[in-house]
Every structure is written in C-alpha cells, then in structure tokens.
Design a protein around this nucleic acid. Sequence first.
DNA 1: GAACATTGTTCTGTAATGTCGAACGGGGAC
DNA 2: GTCCCCGTTCGACATTACAGAACAATGTTC
Lengths: 252, 252
Amino acid sequence: MSESRTIQSVARALFILEAFSNQNKELSVTDLSKKLGLSKSTAFGLINTLAEYGYLEQNSENSKYRLGLQLLKLGSLVQMNNIICQKARPYLEALVSEFDETVHLAIQRFSVVVYIDKIESDRTIYIHSHVGAENPMYCTGVGKCLLAYMAEGERQRVYKSYKTLEQRTPKTLHTFEQLEHDLTLIRERGYSLDDEEFGLGLFCVAAPVFNQADQVVAAISISGPKAHFEADKVALIAQRMRVISQNLKQSL
Amino acid sequence: MSESRTIQSVARALFILEAFSNQNKELSVTDLSKKLGLSKSTAFGLINTLAEYGYLEQNSENSKYRLGLQLLKLGSLVQMNNIICQKARPYLEALVSEFDETVHLAIQRFSVVVYIDKIESDRTIYIHSHVGAENPMYCTGVGKCLLAYMAEGERQRVYKSYKTLEQRTPKTLHTFEQLEHDLTLIRERGYSLDDEEFGLGLFCVAAPVFNQADQVVAAISISGPKAHFEADKVALIAQRMRVISQNLKQSL
DNA sequence: GAACATTGTTCTGTAATGTCGAACGGGGAC
DNA sequence: GTCCCCGTTCGACATTACAGAACAATGTTC
C-alpha cells in the first residue's frame, strides 16, 4: 500500500529492534550503527529512546544493548488478544499431555506461516521453532493445511511469491504438481502430513482451524521425531485433530 | 539518565504501541491521535510506519488497528534470550504438574516485579496476571522475596519510591515495620508467603532464585485460591521450592 | 435516498527536529 | 603511562516530520 508515509526515524528504530536475534542477543551502538548504515550518533539517539521506554536494556557490564522487557509485555498482549490463541490453548494442552509431542498453533501471514503459540514436549529437543517465528508454507504441516483450504485466488498469489520450491530435504515436495496433489489429499482426509519435508527426521501431523464462516484461520500441528509416529498413532492423532477442529469452529 | 536525547517521533510511536491494552484491543487513528494529543495526520504517519513493519495490523473490517505479530516475535525472543527463563522453565513445569497451581517467574525492574514466565493451572481461573505484567513488590510473594534478599541500599531506594503502602486488602502489610518484619522472617525460612495480601482469597508461596554470586536475580512462585493451601501442603511446597532454588543457583 | 457526520488517508508549506561529523571522556589492553 | 576503542555529547545544517485543511469512502439519520 502506501509505503509513502513511513517516518524515517521510526522505521530506523524498528530496524534496530529487528537487528537482534538468537545469534545477536547483545549489540553495541557501533554494531548497530554499522548494521544499519547510520552514524553512531544517530544510532545512539534511536537506541537511547528505545532504552528509555524499556524496549532495549543496557547491560551494565559491557554497556551493550539487548531487547527489553517492554517487548515481553506487548508480545504477550498480542497473544492474549488473539481470540484463536485463547480458544485453542486448552486443546493444545490436551494434545501435549496425550501424545507428549510438541504442538504448534500457526496462522498465515503473507506467504509464510507464523507460529502464534507453542507447547513443547519434554522429550523432543530438535524442534527449534518459537512463537513469532516464520516458516515457508509449502513444506510444513501447518503451511500445507492453510494452503489446502485457503481461497483459490489467494493460493495463486502465494504461489507467485515463490520463485522455486526450495528442496530442503530429498522428500520436500518441490514441484507445484506434487504440492497440488498433496493439497487435494489433505482436503480429502481433513489433515496434513509432513514426512521429513521440512527437515530430516521430522514428522508432523496438522489440521486446519476454521471459523464459523468456514474460512481457515489457523492450523494446529503436532510434531516430533519420525520414529515416534507409527501409522496407527498417526491415525489416532488425526482423529483427535479432527474433533478439535470441529470443536474450535463452534467458538470462532 | 539522559532523557535529553530522546527522539520525538520514536517516542510517540512507542506510546502508540503502549496505548493498546486488554481493554483497548483495537484503536482507530482518531482514538490514538486524541489519546496522544497529536494531529490525525501525525498519528497516521506513525501508525502507518508501525503497520508497515508488522508492529500494528489493520482490521480490514472496521479499519481499526491492533498490535501486530512482529511484537510476538520480539517478545518471544526476549524470553528465549533470557537465561533465567531458560533454566527455570523445567522447574516451573515440574511444580505445575505436581501441585496443579499456577506458577510464575518474576524479576525486579525498578520498583516493581515483572513476570517473565507463567504456566497456568487448569483449575485456577482468577489469577489474571500475564507475562510482561507488573505488580508492586511489597504485597506479592515474588516481590517480597526479591525485597528480602536484595542489597540493603537498593531496598531503601525501592522504599523511597513508595509514598505509602497501599492497603489492597485488610491483610496487606501496610507499614514499613510490618514489611521489614516479614522480610526478616522470609530470610530466616528461605521462602515468602502471601496470605491474601495482594488480593482476597489469593495465596502464594514464593522462593528466591540466586546466581552463583549469591545475588537474587528472580523469584518463583506458586499461587492459587487460599483454600488449596493447607499448612502441610505449604510446607511441602516450600521444601520443593528450596530445592529448586538450590538447583537453579548451580546453573546461573 | 439524499444530506450529514465521521472515518481513514493525502497534500503542502513551514520550522522544528533528527541527522551527521567531530570532539569528549572513560575503560581496558598492552 | 600510552594507546585505542567505545559510548556519549555537542553544534550547525537541512532534511524530515509536523499540523491543518482538503479528500474520499463509509455508515448514519431523517
């Protein structure tokens, strides 16, 4: 839309926040000024403002900055305000306690999925997703679910945004024909499977979440090491998922 | 410190984010411009910038704005980067599953406690705290724990920031003598109790979390309806808490 | 159904504001 | 002690964000 009226200093401040990551937990003024191509004093002004209001915090030992607690507050506010999160939480908890695998709740945003809730199982270690993280749609359980049930026109727009379907593993569906075929399958049985398409050794069962108008608004998934997912267990999970999907529809 | 170099437009943008709350999930441009005393066009520019980068989202139905998913991402990043959260999580989970009451992890920030993690029990409904939320120190289990073990000088500074100790319930410790007495008690037994001091019907057991240098860095608590906390159960909880406190010290 | 009110959004001139470069001051490393 | 590097402050310039009015698009009222 109107990228016209974006306020420079605000945008720069937001870039500063986004410069932080798991790899860069702490950044100095000079780090940030280089990263954004700003003068040190400009960066300092922005950083100082963010710090003043709790969006950044300064480590008193090395005087570097890290993300502040204010973001925790706002982040959890987002989650609480999200009606889908609220309604789905109990079902996610039930899934974890029944199957002891990590569960996710995800929604679509542009051409990717965003995880909006997650409960980890104790016994899985190698899923390093997190709330707020983004992943491609074509190779994840939740993503394929959302693709399968979204409006045709919108799916085409998502497709356009993919130049190619990067083959993350040998099993990744990397042509649009394969993908479309899988989506049909998903619609037929009401749930999606990700059999090492996103990562080797990773298995995932996902199901769509509809609102009362029958539009997909989210997807839930349960994922873990492939070894844990024998055929009959998958069938059981799928059945549970379908029930959850139906129950959730009533309340959305 | 230097409140001097705060950049106006950035500060205003942050105020916009902070205008949202549980009561105000969605706000319009005019709402926000009035709330901040800005012209509509100024507010629009700021809002538009925030929306551009995912910090706000526009509801396509009523064209109002709400907090965006980018905040979810950053918020969860804060939590992940926080070493205390990471280390304490498993213990919190163990507490929930053993006692089936809501647990919190909190740290001090200026003169208040901030909850940095929380796991809810199914059976409690009336604790409406949330991650990122702030509460006073003198009348909460975690707050008193932190007060009890912090450096004398810092405690005095916190005291100074309290004009009076607002008596939230008849049981709230509302004089500094009462409070100091309780803090001594806490140090003696190694845990704190909040017996309807914060809210009627609410009981809470909390314990300090130390780093290896023996400084309090956080506190954990388990809280719920007073009726659930009989004397022998409290004793058991306190014992568990002490063990957790010791174990955590090793890893911090 | 037309007049109205109210909203989000665009436009434009103005001056306040954010920007940069340079300089300051403090803390380690050697 | 001397160096270097970093966070922080200063000052001058012009870029940038600001307010107010105008516009377009909704929804409301009679």
